[in-house]
Amino acid sequence: MSSAQQNFSAGQSHGQTQAKAEDWVQSTKESASAAADRAHAAANTTGQTAERNKEEAAGFLQQTGEQVKNMAQGAVESVKHTLGMDKNQN
């Protein structure tokens, strides 16, 4: 094999290796970008779920508070009625 042919083969191998390395770098960048997108979507979904759970908990607590208040009012009215202090009594 001549010196020119060896140089050509070496240059060709170098070019192919460089192209493969560039493809690998591009593929890695795309994979990292896709992973970042998935992580962002997961974080967004988690945040939405947390907000929805927070709203549901607040509604539950408000409803429970109303029930306790109504029960306490009923107990007070019952005690007033028992003691004869009920203003609505005939």
Rank of each mutant, 00 (worst) to 15 (best):
G84S: 04
E56I: 15
Q63D: 15
N70L: 13
N70E: 09
L61K: 15
V68D: 01
T82N: 08
M71F: 08
A72Q: 09
H81G: 00
K80G: 01
T64I: 07
V68T: 03
E56R: 15
F60W: 12
Q67S: 13
E56Y: 10
D86V: 06
Q73P: 00
S78A: 03
G65M: 11
F60Q: 13
E77T: 05
G84I: 06
G59H: 10
V79H: 04
Q62L: 12
G65H: 13
L83D: 02
Q67I: 13
Q73N: 01
V79S: 06
G65P: 12
L83G: 01
L83T: 07
Q62V: 11
E56S: 15
A75Q: 00
M71G: 04
S78Y: 01
G84M: 03
Q62H: 11
V79M: 04
T82E: 01
H81V: 00
G74C: 02
S78C: 01
Q73Y: 03
G65N: 15
K80N: 03
V76D: 08
Q73R: 06
D86W: 05
T82Q: 03
Q63V: 14
Q63P: 06
V79D: 07
Q62F: 07
E66M: 10
V76T: 03
V79T: 07
Q63A: 15
N70W: 09
V68K: 06
M71E: 10
A58Y: 07
A72S: 07
M85P: 00
T82A: 10
Q67N: 10
L61G: 13
G84Y: 05
Q67P: 02
M71C: 05
S78K: 01
E77R: 10
K69N: 06
L61T: 15
S78G: 02
F60D: 10
K87Q: 09
Q63K: 14
L83E: 04
A57S: 15
S78N: 04
T64R: 11
G74E: 02
G65Y: 04
Q73A: 05
E66P: 01
K80T: 05
A57N: 13
D86S: 11
L83M: 02
Q73T: 00
N70M: 08
Q63G: 11
G84W: 03
S78I: 00
V68A: 08
L83I: 00
V68P: 02
K80D: 04
M85Y: 02
Q73K: 03
L83C: 05
K87G: 04
K87Y: 00
K87I: 08
V76M: 07
H81Y: 01
G65K: 14
E66R: 07
A75E: 02
K87R: 06
E66S: 12
Q62E: 14
Q67V: 13
D86G: 09
M85W: 09
T82Y: 06
E66F: 10
H81D: 08
A72D: 12
K69D: 02
N70I: 06
K87D: 05
K87W: 02
S78H: 02
F60M: 13
V68I: 12
Q67K: 10
N70A: 13
M71S: 11
G65D: 15
L61R: 13
N70Y: 05
L83A: 09
V68R: 08
M71P: 00
A75C: 00
T82H: 06
L83S: 01
K80W: 03
K87S: 13
M85I: 12
T82P: 07
D86L: 07
F60G: 09
L83F: 05
S78V: 01
L61H: 15
K69T: 07
L61Q: 15
F60L: 13
T64F: 04
